[in-house]
Simulated assay, not measured.
Amino acid sequence: MIATQVPAPIPDPKSIPSNAPEHCPGTESELAGKSDACAGQRMSTVKRRILVLSGKGGVGKSTFTAQLGWAFAADEDTQTGIMDVDICGPSIPTILGIASEQVHSSSSGWSPVYVQDNMAVISVGFMLPTSRDAIMWRGPKKNGLISQFLKDVDWGELDYLLIDTPPGTSDEHLSIVQYLKESGIDGAVLITTPQEVALQDVRREIDFCRKVGIRIIGLVENMAGFVCPNCQTESQIFKPSTGGAKRLAEETGIELLGAVPLDPRIGKSADYGVSFLDEYPDSPATTAYLDIIDRIKDILED
């Protein structure tokens, strides 16, 4: 069923990618993301579409997306997809242990990479010659690729599609909102850390969501204290000098889904591409993750 492998080099500007399905305009075309032929019904087979946002980089957004994906896929009957639209910093393939894989194309479109039978992933990271290669694209080219991810990836039937976004509120975010306008976005989870410098950026992300009409599922505070792997004692590393995510949630009327303590083994799991939840089930961070994930499920089912 699988035909050609995606070539390693990034497509030349103003050209149609050699791996693009025949019916879809190239990413540099003015028709990218707008063609009726491209429209299809890909998203109609996806039950829930969730954005994972953080106004600031380095707060653990991609790691949270990966853990959320692992948790959903723990149920063999739940089909989960992860779309990495952090075009310039695609870390999801590494975090999930599939960085050496590549996307393929067939008559039905682009086939995502499978972590396991019920967990599929698409990322520009699969299309790079090496993990060291920089992607230097202007907005239109980024938008075109995101459009193709949404309209040409053959996800099949999905229960959840998690969309991992870059920091900020610019091109990639606006593209996702625009292209998912018809099928809809079920909500956004906002990730922060306790210190004010991160909370300031999250306030901008909240403003963005409200301006474009995205439902905010809730806030998650990452790195909320440090858990010693040996004695399980928790201490503060990033002091919440202005009240942290709890205070922000009260000010904005947004639910605080939970706080995940900093466990150094989270980073280790991400480096080795394994599920932290499976590897360290007794960690307080795992308990926090699972409580947050259960709450997200409850909110989406209401």
Rank of each mutant, 00 (worst) to 15 (best):
K151N: 15
T169Y: 04
R42D: 04
I237R: 00
Q5H: 01
M1L: 08
L277H: 02
D171F: 01
Q178K: 13
M136L: 14
L256D: 07
I292S: 11
H173C: 01
V113E: 12
R48G: 01
Q232V: 03
G184K: 12
D186S: 15
S100T: 14
L300N: 01
L145C: 03
P167I: 01
Q116E: 05
S131R: 15
I176W: 14
I146S: 10
I163N: 00
F126R: 09
C24N: 02
V177S: 05
T286C: 05
G26A: 10
L277W: 00
E250I: 08
E205S: 15
D75N: 14
K211S: 11
A39I: 15
E30T: 07
I266M: 14
E22L: 10
V52E: 07
V212Y: 05
S62R: 02
K246T: 14
Q236K: 11
I296F: 03
D86H: 06
K34C: 07
I254T: 06
D36C: 05
V212M: 09
S235C: 06
V52A: 07
P194A: 06
S131G: 04
A74R: 15
N230W: 05
S107M: 11
V85M: 10
I254S: 08
E301R: 07
S275Y: 06
F64Q: 08
L51N: 01
S275A: 14
G125E: 10
C209G: 04
H23G: 05
G218M: 13
T242L: 11
I50S: 09
D298R: 15
S269M: 01
K246G: 11
L174Q: 14
G168W: 07
S235G: 11
K141L: 09
S131E: 15
G144S: 11
E221P: 06
D117N: 10
T65L: 07
G139M: 03
